[in-house]
């Protein structure tokens, strides 16, 4: 499965390094990465292949969320089907 990882917060140095470091640590393969602006916030969006994670997906999602909390960022890791369902007929 593929997951969409969104990182939202104030822009600061090392955000990409921290999140991609965590992806590497848990065995997620980053396929695509882009950034945008959501209202006044910095928004980074990653698409990651999660078939060979070293932990269950829910734990990976929780670890990224915790990483976000430590860095005052909102990090959400969601199955890509959410976006496919909502925005594709």
């Amino acid at each position: 499965m593929r997951a969409v990882i969104t990182v939202i917060g104030k822009d600061s140095k090392g955000i990409i390094a921290k999140v991609s470091g965590a992806c590497y640590e848990y065995g997620a393969n980053i396929i695509d990465i882009t950034q945008s602006v959501l209202r006044e916030y910095f928004a980074m969006i990653m698409l990651a292949e999660c078939d060979s994670l070293s932990v269950p997906f829910t734990e990976f999602a929780r670890a990224l969320s915790a990483l976000g909390e430590q860095n005052a960022l909102d990090i959400r890791t969601m199955h890509e089907d959410v976006f496919q369902s909502m925005h594709r007929i």
Binding site: V4, T6, I8, I31, D32, T34, S36, L38, A43, I45, L47, R76, E80, V82, F83, Q84, M86, H87
Partner: peptide
């Protein structure tokens, strides 16, 4: 890829 950035941000 096949996902649209604005769609993702709208959902989030």
């Amino acid at each position: 890829s096949i996902l649209n950035i604005q769609d993702i941000l709208e959902t989030v």
